[in-house]
Write a protein that binds this DNA or RNA. Structure first.
Lengths: 341, 341
DNA sequence: CTGGGATATGACTACGTAGTCACGGAGTTG
DNA sequence: CAACTCCGTGACTACGTAGTCATATCCCAG
């Protein structure tokens, strides 16, 4: 009869087969010096034969480190968050860390802070809060590990909370400046939900650009990142003959805006210029193709993660501070305003 | 001076503070019976005071189980994969499992099989391959844990590879039947990359529907899921006056198709009807709003994960087999063909 | 009032890894 | 050739948890 499934082989089993001590196996596996070539080969052969994989639980227990970083995400399938997660995974893996993900569904009262708690219980050496929002409650959490957040997080009591500069401000400024340069008197804004710091940053960039140009600041509209909310905002804009230029806080909402404008018979870009943000793959294939601002998620993550690792590993690694940049992609949805009457 | 950071408190520390044995703390933490209420309260108070969190590494080492499942993903920010991941995380968390993610960037020669190996090294009790593709090489991996895959995976040698029925077939059939019912003589297809099983399933559903209706089967076009590839396919379709109906394997490509058709002056749906797949949030706000097929990711994942857990936990849990369904969403991009001349 | 089950608690131990230290031999230097 | 250093190896141990088994009460039935 088939045996009850036995435990996977350990370094002790490898040691026995290779005729060496367990410690020597450990040395070989970790590539430590002071092992003769002959023994090294014997151990590797034995390990291969047994299908040995080192037990990360035992390793973590011994070292007191998990070699794992956790991501507290909002769990949306939006392009931005999804891209962040992918970049995070890649960079974490590159520096030898595994990645845990915990989502906090939007509308969930538990919130980001609870996701952090869940990660801490799972065992991680560091935490990334990928889309920080304004904390809905004042739950105090004592995070015993460094936390990287792209915006302030209330209620979090961590030894080191790291917050790289918000690059969304640059993006908002760039989009707005582009429209102003084209000659528009001012620029409307369809913002993301104000609970999101990313949304606030874009508002700030938009404000700064208007102020710098001495343009009047019209009241911003607010959506929830969804095309549906963009559509609602678009209907408001379509009704306003003064509105000739809009900066929309993400491409999804911009799609809704475009649809509303088309429906109302307002031509883009002749009557209204539209700038989105994110440069989703579909942006170039809308009607008209959408001018938008692209963020370099790779650079943002690389930068932030380097800071985080510096804290985790006690400054042993050199942090490469390649400053994240934003990049305006001009397509056909923007143009100078029509001749003034 | 500040102490060197000391280890986090363990059950022993809690035990000392509460004046009980370490084992009793373990019992309280795990909610085991046979602990007096008074002691239970004392222990909980002590744990709270010290900020105790049980060490998962020690727990995993002791039990030989990680309470963690791993996802091998392709690392795209597409709507489908992103939604799968979110559903996975939610369901895993609900049954008390943590989630590890490893991506294998498309074009990476290492492939899915290597991602599986990485997960095994990280320590997981089960693995989900969320977007299986046809293995590019014959690397044999000995996965010592159950693997859930939504399609065959070559080169994987696992004790139990679980493959729930491919629901993409239903989706393809449903989309095609809808177009045929409207009166189109036949339906063109813009497929996903043939390396993806999801793409193949949709092709199969399309074929089956055509065959069942006795409609001729035109040669399918192939894209890579991206709007750009959809645009290329759309230009081909636009040049073909016989093409009056298209089923596109995902909404992103459908956006490209719509753009190409509009550019060529072919009206949708008057000249060409288009059906997409996924029901991305933007689908309802395209011009025209896109008829599409929605998959119930939640149900697909719930179903698959139940099967996986059954294997992991030895049939202790009751698997709820709520059969995944697809759902056609009819919008304005489809209509009967124009009157025959 | 006595045997026996249910209840409550603790002592001891295994889990697999890698750090610490100890030891023996080879080579090198004064 | 004595004193010393570098190399290669192994014995022993800690890490924190939960399983196993032993022990100590207590209550109730016979």
């Amino acid at each position: 009869m088939p045996e009850a499934r036995r435990r996977p082989p350990g370094s002790t089993d490898v040691a026995r087969l290779a005729g060496v001590s367990q410690k020597t196996v450990s040395r070989v596996i970790n590539g430590e010096p002071y092992v003769s070539d002959e023994i090294r080969q014997r151990v590797l052969a034995a390990a291969r034969e047994l299908g040995y994989r080192r037990n990360t639980a035992a390793r973590a227990l011994n070292l007191g480190r998990f070699h794992r970083i956790g991501v507290a995400s909002l769990g949306s399938s939006l392009y931005g968050p999804a891209s962040m997660l992918i970049a995070l995974e890649r960079h974490a893996r590159e520096v030898g860390y595994a990645l845990s993900v915990v989502n906090t569904m939007e509308g969930d009262d538990t919130g980001v802070v609870n996701a952090v708690e869940t990660l801490l219980e799972q065992g991680v050496d560091g935490i990334v809060i990928s889309e920080p929002i304004v904390a809905e409650q004042e739950l105090r959490i004592d995070a015993s590990v460094p936390v990287l957040s792209f915006g302030p997080v209330a209620g979090l009591d961590a030894p080191q909370v790291i917050t790289p500069g918000p690059s969304g401000v640059d993006a908002g400024r760039e989009a707005t400046e582009h429209l102003l340069r084209l000659g528009h008197a001012t620029v409307r804004h369809v913002a993301g939900p104000s609970r999101w710091w990313a949304a606030r940053d874009r508002v700030r960039g938009w404000r700064e650009a208007l102020a710098a140009a001495g343009a009047p600041e019209p009241p911003p509209l607010e959506g929830d990142w969804s095309p549906a909310s963009g559509y609602a905002a678009g209907r408001v804009l379509a009704a306003d003959r003064e509105a000739t230029a809009v900066f929309v806080a993400n491409d999804d909402m911009a799609i809704g805006v475009l649809h509303a404008l088309a429906e109302a018979g307002r031509a883009v870009p002749e009557d209204v210029s539209v700038v989105g943000m994110d440069d989703v793959p579909a942006a170039a294939y809308l009607s008209p193709p959408l001018t938008t601002v692209r963020q370099d998620f790779e650079a943002i993550i690389a930068h932030g993660l380097a800071l985080l690792l510096e804290r985790i590993e006690g400054g042993s690694r050199v942090a490469v501070h390649d400053t994240p940049v934003t990049h305006l992609v001009v397509r056909r949805s923007t143009s100078p305003p029509k001749e003034k009457r």
